[in-house]
Amino acid sequence: MPDVTIEIDGKAVSVPEGATILAACRAAGIDTPTLCYLENLTPVNVCRVCVVELEGSRTLVPSCSRQAESGMKVKTDSARVRTSRTMVLEFLASSVDVSLADDLQRQMRRYGAQPGRYGPPAPPPKADQRDASVAGHHDPPSGDAAHTVAQPVKRDNELYVRDYTKCILCYKCVEACGSDAQNTFAIAVAGRGFDARISTEHAVPLPDSACVYCGNCIGVCPTGALMFVTEHDRRAQGTWDPSRQNKGETICPYCGVGCNLEVSTQDGEIVKVMSPLESGVTNGHLCIKGRFGWQFVGKRR
């Protein structure tokens, strides 16, 4: 394929035709934050943290989905870009629990984000209140505290928990559950505006939904909102310790597909199973057996 050349921060960068501005930035070694972007999913360009300034464009453009076109002039570190990125990070950190989102935290330090300047977090609402919110209506705020998405953890099955207090609404889980990987469509975005949320139909528990427990949503979640029960419980007990964990790569023995597995063990127990994004077999996705079917290991007598 022919190359196109664009100018990024004054330097010429060549990428194959059809590549995005983000790909060009990465080829040029420019650290560009992303949250909703993932190599194995269709770009939804909703988080807007990857925006760059494109000459001739009235607004900033999302680098993750904008194709590089010959002659484009792009700035990745202008005052406008820095302001927008900082504000997006602050908006998220002031409304969502981002304590487990390592990359987001790193970018916050880089941009000097101060989520505290919107006021202290508002007290969490009653259980199920977010699921019951009505589109187009909300109670007027006092302004003294910053509204958040805080809500109780959803634990309705034995395999994984959904802690939507940590959800930045990046749409990745919806994409992985839908046509980008699993084609199960058990979850979608429901509601509107700040009350938009990931939900099953009528917010039914997962066992009553179409969920097949492939766990591909966990694999793509950037903030730890979706988590193996094994990890969630260990974290709650204070016994989750990555320094004591071993990661082993293997091939799933269940069927003939031969999915690559990355198995994390701690204290002789399998605590988490992922698949590398770059695996040509899985693209990072697994099924219920490869993801969760390991309880028998170690219980053999």
């Binding site: 360009n45 909703v46 988080c47 807007r48 943290v49 927008s84 504000m87 997006v88 908006f91 998220l92 002031s94 409304s95 919107y118 006021g119 589109a135 187009g136 209506h137 909300h138 007027p140 705020p141 006092s142 302004g143 003294d144 910053a146 509204h147 930045i168 609404l169 975005v189 509601g191 509107r192 505006g193 700040f194 009350d195 938009a196």
Partner: peptide
């Protein structure tokens, strides 16, 4: 605007909330 934001992108979804809170203050 807080009610009518679709909620898709962060600047508008959270920005309209923060704007309303600030005006109330």
């Amino acid at each position: 605007f807080r009610d009518e934001s679709c909620g898709q992108c962060v600047p508008c979804r959270v920005g309209t909330v923060r704007q309303e809170e600030l005006l109330h203050r």
